[in-house]
Design a protein around this nucleic acid. Structure first.
Lengths: 330, 330
DNA sequence: CTGAAAGCGCTTACAG
DNA sequence: CTGAAAGCGCTTACAG
């Protein structure tokens, strides 16, 4: 019993063409006619069928989004940013997860081939960069939310990993700390390289590369890393962890070893996930602007769909230092 | 340059009808013909256009999902469960957020009218129950993931709020605690009623209703509530908080007041969000099976779409007690 | 300013 | 077992 454009046309005593015109404000329509059509539309509650419009126009007004999984703490923020922008612009959001590996990708591929969306937003699932690149080269508008420092060959949104890490180092120096340690992410990640370089550069002599341990971005990995550092028996009074989850492990490891934070050792994390303000002591951290990155990526993709040429360089949304108790203000 | 069914038909020297038949394994097709068609499909990488199929069949193979927002800690788990099931069954997931109030709802309404999806899954946004009910009555298949104990008049998935709370009480009794307090959610929430009733029933005499404070499901609200309780100067040695976020506030408030957890006061939360295992001490909590609820809801909706009659009663996915240090095993 | 007709890419009776 | 034709609900040249 769905009302169609034909029904509206019949009731308004005009052609479907005319109804379509007033619907899309395209071409001139006699004022009185337009009013009559609008009245019928209002009275019937008519809404054009998304599927039919999409088929006729060759555009779905829908954007696909591909993410590795939904359980990372900051993923919800990214999604929220994306969702807000798309919704405000009348676009739908078709969400895809790569939680089941190959199978997931096959399903996703099917949706791509089926032209189910006009453009793609993504946070890169493991080992899919070349696949995504091929989609982009095949003509699909793509914008990547680059949390790994990949600097891909297509439009992307990133954050200031280097600057954020430098800010962390600078803050530790301000606190008078002179022997700084670092717990990094996996060496293969671009963001690990960027954060390491930024920290190293700003900390200068206060940082001894020997006081570096590689973690895996998990809490347990962070704890293991700090234990490794403590076992070296080299003094340090400040630690920068490449993400908050590891920083939580660092905090626990330090406590277990009898060190007080921040008195003995100041600790700074990266991300500002919701846990950060609830640790003991509350964690000072470099805030990653997840939501803003989502908004920026969606905005960029829509501009691309509207015909604008996307920027060559990654769009960088800056980090900001959030000062809490684990590395307090001076 | 998209390859269409017409192109496949031409290359295989058959009609579109026949191609459609082998695509959907419908009706008998000569074995040799079918093979020929399949070869062309494989060679061209043909995938039917989602929009065209949807228009012709009157079904989009897409499910809509409406959520209040993406930043609640357990929402990612719900979504992941939903996403896994839909994907495995070849359905798309169209995500809608009600982050911008009325405007969001208007946009959502438009998607509903536009027949953009076959069925709807939702976690209820504030004050939308009557609207959702009208959609359901209007014929849209709906399944609600009921985190609030609403017991709506349409299919839903819930968890054992009462039983979970009773388990918390029983565990505290097992630990020998005899004066139990409770920090509840807002009184208007169905789950608050259910958790209160379950706890009260199982704790019996050990629970004094005077030792109840109402919180708002936030960390700060939990801390305020425990301070209110402490100010009463009535002894208690166990606290059950209606969610983990408030339990974190309880932990902090207790620490500030010089009480030791769990020695002086044992604490149990509800949800088992990721923060729970990282608090000091780690939080014992009633695990809410968010992901399983998402899976169950999606499964139920797909069954409904396939023609099955959905159950009258809410499907209850059971909670489970996760024992950690804040209320350890005996 | 307006409408008839073709077309978007499929599916599905219907006829053979 | 197979195909021509109509139909799903729109949009868009084209003609007037």
């Amino acid at each position: 019993m769905r009302v169609t454009i034909a029904e509206v046309a019949r009731r308004a005593r005009v052609s479907k063409t005319t109804v379509s015109r007033v619907l899309n404000n395209k071409g001139d329509v006699d004022a009185a006619t337009a009013i009559r059509v609008r009245e019928v539309i209002a009275a019937t509650g008519y809404t054009p069928s998304a599927g039919a419009v999409g088929l006729a126009r060759g555009r779905t007004q829908t954007v696909g989004m591909l993410v590795p999984g939904l359980t990372w703490p900051w993923m919800g923020d990214v999604l929220q940013g994306v969702s807000d922008v798309l919704e405000a612009r009348g676009y739908g959001l078709l969400l895809h997860t790569v939680n089941r590996g190959e199978q997931s990708l096959t399903q996703f591929q099917r949706h791509v081939s089926a032209n189910a969306f006009d453009g793609l937003l993504l946070v890169e699932p493991p080992d899919t960069l070349s696949y995504i690149t091929s989609l982009h080269e095949g003509g699909l508008p793509v914008v990547m939310i680059d949390d790994r420092g990949h600097h891909p060959g297509f439009p992307s949104v990133a954050t200031s990993n280097d600057k954020g890490a430098a800010d962390a180092a600078a803050h530790l120096l301000t606190l008078g700390r002179t022997r700084l340690a670092m717990v990094t992410g996996p060496a293969a990640f671009g963001c690990t390289r960027d954060r390491t370089a930024g920290f190293h550069g700003a900390a200068a002599n206060a940082f001894d590369p020997a006081l570096t341990a590689e973690g895996d971005f998990t809490r347990d990995g962070g704890q293991a890393a700090i234990e490794e550092l403590l076992a070296k028996n080299v003094e340090f009074d400040g630690v920068f962890a490449h993400n908050d989850l590891m920083a939580v492990g660092v905090l626990d490891g330090l406590r277990a070893a009898g060190r007080t934070v921040p008195d003995d050792v100041a600790v700074i994390g990266f991300d500002d996930i919701s846990i950060a303000e609830h640790t003991q002591p509350a964690l000072t951290t470099v805030r990653q602007p997840s939501r803003e990155m989502g908004e920026a990526a969606a905005t960029m993709l829509l501009a691309h769909l509207a015909g604008e040429t996307p920027p060559e360089e990654p769009l960088v949304v800056p980090t900001s230092l959030v000062i809490r108790e684990s590395a307090p203000a001076v």
